[in-house]
Each structure stands twice: as C-alpha cells, then as structure tokens.
C-alpha cells in the first residue's frame, strides 16, 4: 500500500542525516522536526475551520518563556519547555472564548492583530526579552546530567517531540474528539442542535494547538541558543500556511509532508529570497487551483485516512 511507502520514505529521510553526516544537513533536519509540532498545531485549527495567525506568536511565547524559565529561575530545561508551553495555552484559554465566538475572517484579523502585539511586546520589553538585539546566553539543553552540545543531539530531541506530537494529533483525529471537531466544522447548526458546545470544543482545540506550538518554541530556543523577535512574525505565518497547503489539510500526515518539503527551501535559496517568495506564491496558488487536498491527495484518497 502506498501509504506504507510514504511512512518508509519518511523513516528513511529521518535517518538520512547520519549517513550524510554533514552539520548543514543535520541543521535542516533539526529545523524540520522543530517545525512539525508548530505546523501540526496550526493544522488542528485549520481542521476546525479557523485560520489562526496567532501561532507564530504562540511559538515565540513558548520559546522566550522556556528560555527565561531556565535562565532566570534555573528550571531544568525539559521542565521549562513543558511549563513554557503552558503559557501560550493559557493565553489561548483566555483569548479563545473571545476570539472563537467569531468565525472566519474576523478570527483571522483578530489573531493577526494579537500576533503583531506579541511581536511588539518582544521588541519593546527589552529588560525581559532583550528587544531587537536579542536574548543571548540561553544554556544548552540538559537532562539527567546529559548536556546536548551537538546539532545531532538536538535533532534527536526534536525528532522525539515531533513523533510524540504527531502520534498525539493522530490519536485525537481518530478518536471521537476528532469526529466531534469535524462535525462542528462540517455543520455547526446540526452539531449544536444535538447538544455539542461548539465554543468549548473550539477553545479546547485552540489550547491544545497553542500548547504544541509552545513545545516547538521551547525546543527551538534551546537549539538556537539566541532569540530575537524576528522569526515570530508574519513570515512564519506564510511559511506555516504554505506547509499546510502543500502537504494538504485533510490528514495529520499532510502538514508533516508539507514541513519536510518546505522547510529546506529557504536554506536552499538562501541568497535569493525573492525567488523563495515566488515559489511559495506559485505553490499556494497551484495547490489551491489544482490540488486543494495537497500532496497527500496524490498518495491516499482522503477517505482511507492516514
């Protein structure tokens, strides 16, 4: 079955960096596995029919929070990442009931504005976040006396997180929760008439998706070792939308494929940002026009699930 082949290929890609052994390849692979939880968080929102532009901000909050928890409070890094991810989910819990009352376009605008404001706070609150000159000196990730100093170490850390979160998201999708979220998205009036509290479920999805974005941010912070507000702005929104669109929003595997093919692009086109934009744009339009279900639709038809 074709799907097996895809899983096999992904597995192969996952171990490929060790065969090549180059730092550069390891770096790209690490960025891919770090982006996977983030894009899966974004994807969960797309599944409930909401395009959230707040996720880069959640990602950033997770990143700064976990870095600061370790730097200022001396928390062990793993704990910082987990606690740090609770902060964006808390924000989602507070904002969700307000934002998610509103569907579609208004939600897009509100989440965008929220993202802008978070970005501004990162820039302006220099005492805490270091402003535009950045937050330096994030210690290396360590656990049980083991210090991660090499890129491949972080690749393994990111890979474990990505696999766990992928499995979590897949379990959600296949469970009754997935059916409920899908029902609400498909026919809200019908679902509500049967008793489902649409807002509560949407908020729950928002909270979970902010949490996984925060996890991704935490790992990113310890890997990069230096944070500036830069990556948490509009460019990442575009990147995420491209990943979901290219991979396909129909299944959880789609965004993973999207991340695998999209993340290396800026690295490959490092000196030609304008071409990268062009390729992104062409991808978005091309997939929307000819294959709304994304790459995944070439592999499995939606009904068989992945």
């Amino acid at each position: 079955m074709k799907l097996r082949v895809v899983y096999g290929l992904i597995l192969l890609l996952a171990i490929l960096p060790w065969f090549i052994g180059s730092r550069y390849i390891f770096h790209i692979a690490t960025m891919i596995v770090i982006m996977i939880p983030l894009v899966l968080g974004m994807h969960l929102m797309v599944r409930i029919g909401q395009l959230s532009l707040a996720h880069p901000a959640f990602w950033g909050v997770g990143a700064y929070a976990s870095a600061l928890l370790t730097m200022r409070l001396g928390m062990p890094p793993l704990l910082s990442i987990l606690v740090g991810a609770l902060i964006p989910s808390l924000m989602a819990l507070v904002l969700g009931p307000i934002f998610l009352r509103i569907k579609g376009v208004f939600f897009v605008l509100l989440t965008f504005a929220f993202g802008e404001i978070v970005d501004l706070v990162f820039q302006e609150w220099t005492d805490l976040f270091g402003g535009n000159s950045g937050l330096y000196g994030i210690p290396k990730f360590s656990i049980l006396g083991l210090r991660l100093t090499q890129i491949p170490h972080y690749y393994v850390l990111g890979l474990i997180a990505a696999v766990l979160i992928y499995l979590l998201m897949r379990a959600i999708e296949r469970s009754d929760i997935g059916a409920i979220l899908e029902s609400l998205n498909e026919d809200e009036m019908l679902s509500r008439s049967m008793g489902a509290n649409a807002l509560a479920w949407r908020v729950a999805a928002f909270v979970v998706s902010a949490f996984v974005a925060g996890i991704s941010g935490g790992i990113y912070a310890f890997y990069i070792g230096f944070l500036s507000p830069d990556p948490f702005g509009f460019q990442t929104i575009v990147d995420l939308i491209v990943m979901v669109t290219v991979g396909g929003a129909g299944t959880v595997l789609g965004p993973v494929l999207g991340a695998i093919v999209t993340v290396p692009l800026p690295e490959l086109l490092r000196d030609a940002r304008e071409y990268q934009l062009m390729i992104y744009g062409v991808c978005l339009i091309g997939f929307m026009k000819f294959a709304k279900q994304g790459l995944i639709s070439f592999i499995v038809d939606k009904r068989s699930g992945a």
């Binding site: 304008e274 062009m278 744009g281």
Partner: peptide, 28 residues
Amino acid sequence: LFRSVVGEEMPGMIMSLGLSIILQSIVL
C-alpha cells in the same frame, strides 16, 4: 485564479495570499 474558489473562504484566502507574495516578488 479566483473564479474557482468563489464562496470558499479558506481557499480564497490562501490563494490571495499566494498572489500577494508573487506580486511582491515580481516587483522585488
């Protein structure tokens, strides 16, 4: 482009975002 996504909010947004960055890159 847009004729095929009239009435579909999410694909419409994604497509217009695509057009937006293409135009930017051309001018760039």
